[in-house]
Design a protein around this nucleic acid. Sequence first.
DNA 1: TCTGGGGTCCTAGGACCC
DNA 2: TCTGGGGTCCTAGGACCC
Length: 425
Amino acid sequence: MPPRYALIDCNNFYASCERLFRPDLRDRPVVVLSNNDGCVIARSAEAKALGIPMGTPYFKCRGLLRRHGVTVFSSNYALYGDMSARVMGVLARFCPAVAVYSIDEAFADLTGVPGGADAFSRRLKATVEAWTGIPISIGIGPTKTLAKLANRLAKGHPRLRGVFDFAASPDPDRLLRHTPIDAVWGIGRRHAARLVRYGVGDALAFRDMDPVWVRRKMSVTGLHTLLELRGQPCHTLADGPAARKTIVSSRSFGRPVSSLEDLREATALHMVRAAEKLRRLRAVAACVHVFLRTNPFRPGLPQHNDSASVPLAVATAHTPTLIRAAHAGLERIHKEGFEFKKCGIMLSGLEPVNGRWLSLLDLPPQDTPTHVPTMQIVDDLNARWGRDTVTFAAVGRPDAAWHMRRDMRSPRYTTAWTELPVARA
DNA sequence: TCTGGGGTCCTAGGACCC
DNA sequence: TCTGGGGTCCTAGGACCC
């Protein structure tokens, strides 16, 4: 039996989350902005119909949004993350095998499900929607690439009611011919433009290209896409997110920053977040990277982009040690006289905490084993009483001017006791 | 005034070694 | 005059994904 992959994803996920606790916004245009209220990253169907493009800078479409009475939200990742976990929980409960692919998508292996993939998927869709309130679409195919393509069709044709099985089509070539090349999973803007120049404008034409040419010009990843369109699986379910190799934390500033003092605070805050994630993964990091950026949209201003890497003597998840390393790197790359727009840190050389190599001779004094319980206590307090109940002085004041803007954030309805929705009698 | 953030994989080319 | 060849490791840059 050929494999039956499903790609299950949430419709307009962030916008759908925002509407969950705002029934007054049902059937209304809603958009969600990126961090710092920078650009539009999610739109309800009604907002899409108004012609608001994905990724538009907010300041460029503010007038249009206001004219059409669009409700605008800053991003609320506490809410989206929690709703995502609920949706994924339902999928895990009913599907034989699931691989979470992103905050709003998962692949599942539906090979051999009782009653067939289509009927199973319709029941699954109804259950997710009833239990979480988040609408989803499901595409099914013999490969992940075709499941993605089927998902796109399920969304585009209301007649299909949100579920489509590519293998059920009497004329699959026609479906491929009507799929533009840049809508194929794995073909990005650059390759799409190039293929169009060669006269390859849709998925069918790409499928029938010479694999040798594709391998040479688009590397093995392009070849895999081609083969998957032919129904030959190159990606298995387990292929998804393997063991993480890096952790990044970075943000644009709410306003430009120049002083080393502010940059030290911002860097420390990024490191606090990254180290929390590191410990949640039960991992330690062997190397710290720091980077600084000026504003690329202001080429008239003096530009300075740089990064520094600081290897650690011993891989660790100890926040103060990691902050010290980041600050050492920062001092190497900071220069006076620039308006910085963004900074960030990256942790690399991740390894599981249990498999960790330890040399007693090389152990720096600040990384003695007694600090592991210290970090454990900090994490436990913050889990019990809320984020940043206990934090580090190096991060500075929470009201510092450089923090990101998010003036239109909705309440954290499902994750903060103080922000629960209130029902009136 | 105002343009997101976090990841992965692949390849080419240089450094280095024998 | 003349200046190997092959393997490995690392990094930067490109391309893609959400």
